[in-house]
Simulated scan of single mutants.
Amino acid sequence: MRASLIQLSVDASDTADERRRRAASLVRDRAGDDLVVLPELWAAGAWSYDGWDRDAEALDGPTAEAMSAAARGAGVWLHAGSLVERDRDGTLYNTALLFDPAGDLRGHYRKIHRYGFDTGEATLMGGGHDIVTVPTDFGVVGLAVCYDLRFPELFRGLLDAGAELIVVPAAWPAARLGHWRLLTRTRALEEQVFLLACCATGTHGGMRQAGHSVVADPWGTVLREAGPDAETVTVDCDMTEVSRIRTELPVLRDRVLSVEAPEGHRVRWHAVTGSAAGGAVR
């Protein structure tokens, strides 16, 4: 499985339309890949809180429309990072989107863990409730976003829902790059999955983003890591390594303790057929 992480530069001088055009062009350049990944909130800006209400959109809004067309044009599975979603009741969510090669939306995930403590995302957005995995041509993909990396119980939930590969779009602060490097490797190692973490670069809202997008394998080995500036990282992942490593070092089989999801949270997965998110709950 060939995957590309497009590490977009998201700067204060860009407009959302300019970012959409640039992202779509870069995705179309990746024809021949299996999976392409974009960062967190790249259209609106993850640190530009004051513009979120203005830039919020529905799941069929301009960003989703542009990314659907780009996925279809390139013939790739596209994890379009995340956008500021406005629900019908007016609530804003940080929502990740996964499109198939036909451009159909096959899964979306509302970020559960909101960053900011008493400011920003934590106060301006609602929190998601679903742990989401999506079957694809190359394996079951689990969805998480940025700050979620600090919460291992979410990743254990994704594992229990069948994840073999977890995608994490981010706008991680450059000041905590060391945490980013540690947590991405750790989550791959402890769940014995491939972890693809695509982080934005550039500065906006007064925050310098880390870049250093990374692909780690089920041993926790970094296969590729980007630098601090805009670039595309491409890597070939042998998905058979997931089952091989889980057999060779069967730590997941030896689990004894489990933690129930908090009330109001649940695990769900999506059927392969159909163009919108849906599926069973357990």
Rank of each mutant, 00 (worst) to 15 (best):
D55N: 12
V222C: 11
L195Q: 06
R88F: 05
H265R: 13
T232Y: 06
A230S: 15
D104F: 07
P135H: 07
A58M: 04
D238E: 00
S13C: 09
A170D: 09
A31H: 12
E18A: 15
G81V: 00
F99Q: 10
A80M: 02
Y49N: 05
A64S: 07
T240E: 12
M125V: 08
Q209W: 01
H113A: 01
M1P: 10
L124D: 01
G45V: 01
D11P: 14
R176S: 15
M1R: 05
V281M: 11
D148L: 06
D87C: 14
I131E: 03
T15I: 05
D100L: 09
S25I: 03
D229N: 15
R110K: 15
V256W: 08
R106K: 15
R28S: 11
A161S: 14
D236C: 02
A64T: 06
S213N: 04
S243L: 12
D137H: 10
R86Q: 09
A188N: 03
L97R: 09
V84G: 02
L41R: 10
E85C: 06
S25W: 08
G157W: 02
H113V: 03
V140W: 00
F117T: 09
A46W: 01
D87K: 12
A200C: 08
T133F: 05
G90D: 11
V36R: 03
P135Y: 09
S82H: 08
Q7Y: 07
D160W: 12
K111C: 13
H129S: 15
G103Y: 09
D238I: 01
T201W: 01
A96G: 14
V215Y: 00
L249C: 08
L8G: 02
L35A: 08
G279T: 09
R110M: 09
A80C: 10
A171C: 11
W172V: 07
A46D: 00
L195N: 06
G142A: 03
V214L: 14
A277W: 04
V134W: 00
R88A: 15
G61K: 02
Q192H: 01
A31D: 04
N94T: 05
E248Y: 13
L41A: 07
H265M: 14
I245D: 00
A163F: 10
T63N: 09
G51P: 01
M1A: 13
A24Y: 05
